[in-house]
Design a protein around this nucleic acid. Structure first.
Lengths: 328, 328
DNA sequence: AAATTTTTAGCAAACATTTCCGCAAAGCTT
DNA sequence: AAGCTTTGCGGAAATGTTTGCTAAAAATTT
């Protein structure tokens, strides 16, 4: 079965290609009678416009690129989910690429995006990406870029991020409000902006001198390490543990189960999270929600305003709210 | 900055477009000297072939469609991850679409795929999709389809599935080997083929008459329901719980935590799983691994052989192995 | 009835690429 | 040196769509 094209319809109806094209776009130049005939046949033959031809002619692809360290991830999959939803609603396609958190693959992905003449790019940096030339090149070609989550720490870019400072502050305040005095706080990769922000805000809010709190902070690079270090550092007097992320939370909770500690009697737990993992435990973990899904929606609307002509570069932040579980 | 095209290079060098095209493809017709000159300039101008033009001409897009109920899911995201990896390695692009487990959206997605003239489709059915006409239409257009996970229960299609029967059998055998006599087994949506297979195999392996096992089976539709029903049905004598999926496992485990049961002393747990969630708990849950990642790799190689000309329709199954945790 | 406007539809170019032909010049064989 | 082959490159068509321009036919106004 050959696919239906404008040409084919034109030949059958003895009309010109341009007439068919106009009729299907409801152009006023074509009479109602002709239009009807054409639309009918097009439906019958299940005509689908060839996007490649359209893109070629219009020099617009209506395809977005999306680069993410890993698809299979607590946070990114919900971000992707949101962007996919919006893309479909707005007649865009989505090309999703994962970098494996490696700069070299990230660069390769950017190249792929350029080859595909994407209309815009959603990008999350790999942990060790420090050079933004490839992105600047895209900008020079007037391809809008929305950075999310892990964003460049310098340069004029559009960024959407979760409310790192606010989230950490809310978490710390919640802990302080419960009069906890000996806090173990676990953070991720210390090079990441996201870590720096959360750490700074948490520390400042605890303000040890003022509150009389003893705060122990530590950096871990994955869940297993979080488990190990928690088991090691958890002292008799520790009365609260703060987890910067879901990955850390899962490690900490494994240690808690191992030590058979009663939450929240023996110990309080508070996390910053997307919201899924805290609900896995009983009692459910109290957390500050930073939603990947919301961030995705935000990123998309940001993209649309870029396409709409806005050249205003800014960093937008989602909100963060404390969700009470039973762990505090 | 305008983008570089063959035409542009041709004009600068005073050569014809076809010469440029051939040179960049290392065609023997072009002399080494000319080739070198052309390649040099192309690199300098950062020439990237326009995929739309290529696809238009070749009538091949090298784009795969992938339809999945949800991106943000225990299983599918690892499947997607594998397919994305392979696609990139093999110079294909991937268009990922989620159906929200709704047949109507699934149909819309298929339409999108047709519009984009995809070279092949990876599809997972929505729970209540019973009509395969849209897929048959694709097949008629000679677009290969690889169904995965939730596959049609009739018709000539390519399917890749996890080893449902084997997995359930392995799990049951592991439980029997430990001499458990009173098993609670939780299964998902009873309309799904995957559920039917696992249920049948599990039941058969337990063979109550022969083994003297008391088996209680129940269907739940989500994690919360799994939790509730476990809390309700878990009797004093129950010595093992089987979970058909990760989603069910998380619900069951929440109940376990609530009841403060000691695993595996008070109760044994065995699950069929992708492998991530069992490692969240302490002790880690013993599970039969059915990897979404492996399934993705399998689906992709299946797709490649379809593109290679194989018209042989078959159902392929990944293997399944028991991974010992400490819950049995 | 002639002139003008409106309606309706076709022509052709352009988007970037590939590839089948064709053709001239150079090299080769007798 | 006449015929033959090889080398190196260009012309043009084709892929499916859109759109500015043009033009015939119909409807309307003088």
């Amino acid at each position: 079965m050959t696919t239906t094209t404008l040409k084919k319809i034109a030949e059958i109806l003895g009309l010109s290609i341009s007439t068919i094209s106009r009729a299907l776009k409801n152009h006023p130049d074509i009479s109602e009678k002709t239009k009807q005939k054409i639309v009918e046949l097009a439906n019958l033959l299940e005509y689908e416009p060839n996007v490649n031809a359209i893109h070629l002619r219009s020099k617009k692809t209506n395809v977005f690129g999306l680069i993410v360290p890993f698809i299979s991830n607590y946070f990114y999959d919900s971000f992707i989910s949101a962007v996919e939803e919006e893309s479909r609603k707005n007649n865009f396609s989505l090309m999703i690429l994962q970098s494996g958190d490696k700069t070299e693959v990230e660069l390769e992905n950017i190249k792929l995006c350029r080859q595909n003449r994407i209309s815009g790019l959603f990008a999350c940096l790999s942990s060790d990406t420090k050079n933004y030339d490839a992105y600047i090149k895209l900008k020079d070609q007037e391809i809008p870029i929305i950075f999310f989550d892990k964003v460049p720490d310098e340069g004029e870019f559009n960024k959407v991020t979760v409310a790192d400072t606010l989230a950490a502050t809310l978490a710390a305040n919640a802990i302080i409000a419960k009069n906890k005095k000996n806090i173990l706080a676990l953070f991720g990769n210390k090079n990441l902006l996201i870590t720096k922000k959360r750490l700074a805000a948490f520390k400042e809010t605890c303000n040890e001198k003022l509150t009389g709190i003893k705060l122990t902070t530590v950096h871990v690079s994955n869940s297993a390490e979080a488990e190990k270090i928690t088991c090691k550092l958890l002292g008799k007097k520790t009365d609260a543990v703060f987890c910067m992320s879901d990955e850390i939370l899962t490690g900490v909770m494994k240690c808690i189960q191992k030590k058979k500690l009663k939450i929240p009697i023996d110990l309080s737990i508070v996390s910053i999270s997307n919201g899924f993992f805290p609900k896995l435990y009983y009692p459910e973990i109290t957390y500050v929600e930073t939603s990947g899904y919301k961030l995705g929606k935000l990123a998309f609307s940001s993209m649309l305003s870029c396409l709409g002509g806005s050249t205003f570069m800014q960093e937008i932040t989602t909100d963060a709210v404390l969700v009470e579980g039973g762990s505090l």
